[in-house]
C-alpha cells in the first residue's frame, strides 16, 4: 500500500475548482516532488491530505486511512512544514519546537534538537514575532526533523532559506530518506526537486499533468541540439518535430522531438559537423513546456 494515494480528487471553493480530478501516488520510502506554479493546487492537496479540508469528489488515503475521518491517527505518523510558517508571537522558537513535537506525541530529544538548532544556526530564545521569514521556516523545519517520522509533508520548505541553509535542508532530508521516511515535497523551485526527488508529479489548475521518474519524463520531451557546421547549413525541411531552429554563422541550434533525432543527425552529418552537443531537457524546460500547454 502506498503511503499517499489520491484518485480524481475534487475540491471546490464556491465557483472555483481548486482541485479538479487530481491523481497523486507517493510510494513508500521515496522522495516525491510535487510541482506546480502558484495557485496550481499544491497547498490545497496537502491540506486535503491532512484532513483540514473536506473534498467533494474522488478519493484520498494516507497510510490507507481516510484523511478526513482518521486525521489524528494519520497525524501521529506525519510531520508537516507549511509554506508560510506563522508562529505564536509570545512563544519562543524553542518553546514552539517542543510544543509541536509534544503535540505530535513525541518527547523532544535534546540531542537531536540541539544538533539541528546548531546546523540551522537558529537562536531558540527569540520570541515568535521577532523571527524573520527564513527563521520562522527553520523553527518549523527543526520541529519536523527533530524526531523520526513515517511521512514528511513539506510545502515549499526552502522558500525563505539562503543557499547554505538549503544545503543543510538537503542533508537533513537525505538523512531522513536513508531512515526510510517517505517525503512529499511540494515546490515550484525545479532545481531543488531535481536534486532530491525520486519521482515527480506535475500539476496545473488542479489536475495532474505528468507523473513519473525524472528519466521517464525526459523520454517524453525534446532534446536541445547544437552543432557547428563545416559546410553549408543543411536543409532541414524533411526533419519532423523540429523547433526553434536558429543559425548563427556556422552554429546551428534547435530543439528536436525524439522522433526527429535520427533524421536531424543524418542531415547534419551530410552537411559536415565539427562539434555536436545534445542536452536532455532540464526539468525547467519540461515545466515551461507543460505550462504553455505546448505541443507545437
Amino acid at each position: 500500500m502506498n503511503p499517499v494515494e489520491t484518485r480524481g480528487l475534487v475540491k471546490t471553493f464556491g465557483a472555483t475548482r481548486a482541485l479538479d480530478g487530481l491523481d497523486l501516488t507517493v510510494a513508500a520510502g521515496e522522495v516525491h516532488g510535487f510541482l506546480g506554479p502558484n495557485g496550481a493546487g499544491k497547498s490545497t492537496t496537502i491540506r486535503a491530505l491532512l484532513g483540514l479540508l473536506r473534498t467533494q469528489g474522488g478519493s484520498a488515503s494516507v497510510f490507507g486511512l481516510d484523511p478526513w475521518r482518521d486525521s489524528v491517527e494519520i497525524h501521529r505518523r506525519v510531520a508537516y512544514v507549511p509554506g508560510d510558517v506563522s508562529l505564536w508571537p509570545n512563544l519562543t522558537g524553542g518553546e514552539t519546537i517542543d510544543l509541536l513535537l509534544r503535540m505530535r506525541e513525541v518527547t523532544p530529544d535534546p540531542g537531536a534538537r540541539a544538533d539541528l538548532l546548531d546546523r540551522f544556526e537558529l537562536d531558540p530564545t527569540k520570541k515568535g514575532r521577532a523571527y524573520s521569514k527564513g527563521n520562522r521556516q527553520k523553527v518549523a523545519l527543526v520541529a519536523a526533523f527533530a524526531a523520526p517520522t513515517d511521512l514528511l509533508i513539506l510545502d515549499e520548505p526552502t522558500s525563505g532559506l539562503d543557499p547554505l541553509m538549503e544545503q543543510v535542508f538537503n542533508q537533513c532530508l537525505a538523512e531522513h530518506k536513508a531512515e526510510g521516511t517517505t517525503v512529499l515535497l511540494s515546490s515550484h523551485i525545479l532545481s531543488e526537486v531535481e536534486q532530491l526527488a525520486d519521482r515527480v508529479t506535475i500539476i496545473r489548475e488542479g489536475r495532474t499533468v505528468e507523473t513519473g521518474s525524472l528519466a521517464e519524463l525526459r523520454h517524453l520531451r525534446r532534446n536541445r541540439v547544437q552543432a557547428e557546421i563545416t559546410g553549408q547549413p543543411p536543409r532541414l525541411d524533411g526533419v519532423p518535430g523540429l523547433h526553434d531552429v536558429a543559425v548563427d554563422g556556422t552554429v546551428l541550434s534547435c530543439l528536436v522531438d525524439p522522433e526527429g533525432l535520427v533524421p536531424l543527425l543524418e542531415a547534419l552529418t551530410g552537411a559536415g559537423v565539427r562539434s555536436l552537443t545534445s542536452t536532455p531537457p532540464t526539468l525547467e524546460e519540461v515545466f515551461l513546456d507543460l505550462y504553455r500547454g505546448a505541443s507545437t
Binding site: 505564536w88 509570545n90 512563544l91 510544543l99 509534544r102 531558540p124 520570541k127 521577532a130
Partner: peptide, 26 residues
C-alpha cells in the same frame, strides 16, 4: 527591548489547551 525567552518548552506546554492558555496569559 524584546527579552529572550526560554530555549526549551516547559513540559506543561504540551497540548492545545496549555497553548491557548499561554497565548492569553498576559
Amino acid at each position: 527591548a524584546e527579552r529572550p525567552g526560554p530555549a526549551t518548552g516547559s513540559p506543561r506546554l504540551r497540548d492545545v489547551l496549555a497553548l491557548t492558555l499561554r497565548v492569553h496569559s498576559h
